[in-house]
Simulated assay, not measured.
Amino acid sequence: MGRNSFTRVALTLGLALCAASAHAQSGAPGLTRPVVLKPFDAGAPACAKPPNLARVIAFAQDNDRQFMQGVARGLAAAAKDRNLEFRAAVAGNNSAKMAEDIRAFRREKVGAVIAAPIDSVSLAPELQDTIWSGSYVGTIVPPPATSLLNAPQYLTGKVLADVAAAYIRERLGGRARVVLLTHDTLQFLAPRFVAMRDVLRTLPGVTIVADISPLTVNEQGGAEMMRTILLANPDVDVVLGADTVVLGALDALRQAGKARDNQFLGGIDGEPRAIEEIKKNGPYKASVSLSSPVFSYAMGQHAADWLDGKSIPQAMDILPVALTAKTMSSYEKDQADPAAVYRDAARRDSYLKMYGNICYDTRDQYINFPWSSERR
């Protein structure tokens, strides 16, 4: 799960519970203490259908970036396949507008609301009221939700580091000078870089010449940090981090005449420019992506199941996928047809892992703590 998709909500994730507790309680508080959820049981008994709700899936969308456009596309496809209406309200990064959008959905008795929170603190009470009304509430990362999703951050970093390690062994003779452009100041994302260090530590010929967070997590920040690193370490073989900063590092390497096709630059996010660079077969070799159309199509299916009185997962892992020149075509095929992925259990399980069970009758068990499947 990349920075552009999840970092903002991570910054306020822990505060969401405070907002919920300050909100006048008109229903159950949900699960407020961390629990380990069992694997999802697709054969769990059905329960009552939520009464008096419109068969509508509504998306409270933070902005129009490509990742969120993919979320909207997957939700719309699921709604169409289940004969539901789909609506999207784009908040334009305005948290007050998003809260009002969700209040409007609730007044209209919308049966399912999916939110990509801008400010999880202010939005938590609105989501909680929507849960108490009986609607399905799905969120991208923060609680509260009847069904939320997250990316296992350690695994995300490990997937990228494993691809880099294989390249170092096979193409660089086991020796490499490595730069890690980190986000260690963001606790939510720090496990990614713990995983990278753990993997690289297994290669005795690897030297980490820089392990540092850029001042700004964007292409400019990555470029400025890389220029500084090159002053002391002019020859770099591997650069790892989020796509946006690694793309900036690539620009700095090119400007300094230090970019080589046998380098390994790899990032996390599946940014469009990173994908373009991978297809060029140059220094950029991999990007770890989280398929938004696939996971949102699953959320749309679960929303429809909820309205039909079925038991659905309480939480989902979005599993990281390593995009390389070899895997790109199959990934792009899956992105284009998330319904086909969902219908194929093996393909679906390569993208998603589901946990817990909840339905209308057990909605008091909604997740109201910052959930992760990883115990690190």
Rank of each mutant, 00 (worst) to 15 (best):
M1E: 15
A19K: 11
V110H: 00
A286W: 09
D251K: 13
R343F: 07
G74S: 03
I312V: 14
E219N: 01
Q25S: 15
R8Y: 12
N4I: 10
G27S: 06
G356I: 05
G356V: 02
I367F: 03
G221V: 09
D361P: 14
Q61T: 04
S372L: 04
T202Y: 00
R55S: 14
S95M: 07
T12G: 10
A78L: 05
S291R: 10
I114R: 03
L180A: 01
S296A: 10
N52P: 11
R343T: 13
V217K: 10
V239E: 14
V159N: 06
T327Y: 03
P214A: 02
K258Y: 00
A304T: 03
N94D: 11
S133E: 14
L17M: 10
Y167K: 04
R376D: 06
A28W: 09
G14P: 11
S147F: 15
G14E: 13
L253H: 01
A58Y: 12
L290P: 09
A124K: 04
G248Q: 02
G70A: 05
R201Q: 15
M328E: 14
D81I: 04
G43Q: 12
P283R: 01
Q314V: 03
G157C: 01
N83C: 09
P51Q: 01
S289R: 09
G205L: 03
K97H: 08
D237T: 03
N262Q: 10
D361V: 11
H183G: 11
E108R: 05
G138I: 12
F264N: 06
R254K: 15
I212P: 07
K310G: 08
H302T: 06
K258D: 05
A210S: 12
A28G: 02
D305Y: 03
M226I: 09
D162A: 06
Q301Y: 13
L53E: 01
R376W: 11
L186P: 07
R33V: 15
V245S: 08
I318Q: 15
Y167V: 01
